[in-house]
């Protein structure tokens, strides 16, 4: 966060300051298990993709995504797996795949789309693919979905 405009850290003088970790419920799994789960999901996703089951692969990767501190590697793995799925989906299928997702999965997918766009320096993040998914997802899930991405502190 940009804090250079602040000359004094006023939070240091507040004994009862609200902490980052109080803003959301932490993941009950420990980091090693999260990483393990994510790796298993990645291999399961490969299986789905080889059968051409994009919807199944997406549902799998969007269930219990890693969030919070200390799981950077799992987050990275999950994002790159998701980007692989998005990139390998035919653009004509995007609409129906998105409609088939649960509302929670749609919200999570939107989080990843924004994360993908924020890290577009990556070689596997194709911004035009992300934008076309974003358009289709917004048509189905509405702007409420985008609002939820902005409010949710469980960053993926």
């Amino acid at each position: 966060m940009e804090t250079s405009f602040r000359k004094i850290d006023i939070d240091a003088y507040d004994e009862d300051v609200i902490q980052e970790e109080e803003l959301y419920d932490a993941d009950p799994r420990d980091p090693a298990q999260v990483l393990n789960d994510t790796k298993q999901k990645t291999s399961a996703v490969r299986g789905y993709l080889s059968k051409g089951d994009t919807a199944g692969a997406l549902t799998m990767i969007l269930t219990d995504p890693p969030y919070g501190p200390n799981v950077e590697q799992a987050k990275e793995t999950n994002l790159s797996t998701l980007l692989t799925i998005l990139g390998s989906t035919k653009s004509s299928e995007v609409s129906s795949v998105v409609k088939g997702l649960s509302q929670d999965a749609q919200d999570t997918l939107m989080k990843y789309l924004y994360k993908g766009m924020a890290t577009s320096a990556r070689s596997d993040a194709n911004t035009s693919v992300l934008l076309s998914w974003h358009e289709k997802l917004t048509e189905v899930a509405g702007i409420g979905c985008i609002v939820r991405v902005m409010t949710d502190r469980r960053l993926v």
Binding site: D107, A141, G142, I143, G144, C145, V147, R148
Partner: peptide, 16 residues
Amino acid sequence: YPGAPAVITIKSMTLP
């Protein structure tokens, strides 16, 4: 519903 307890969430497609 505190008795059960049951919590029902409706996610809207629109602004808050």
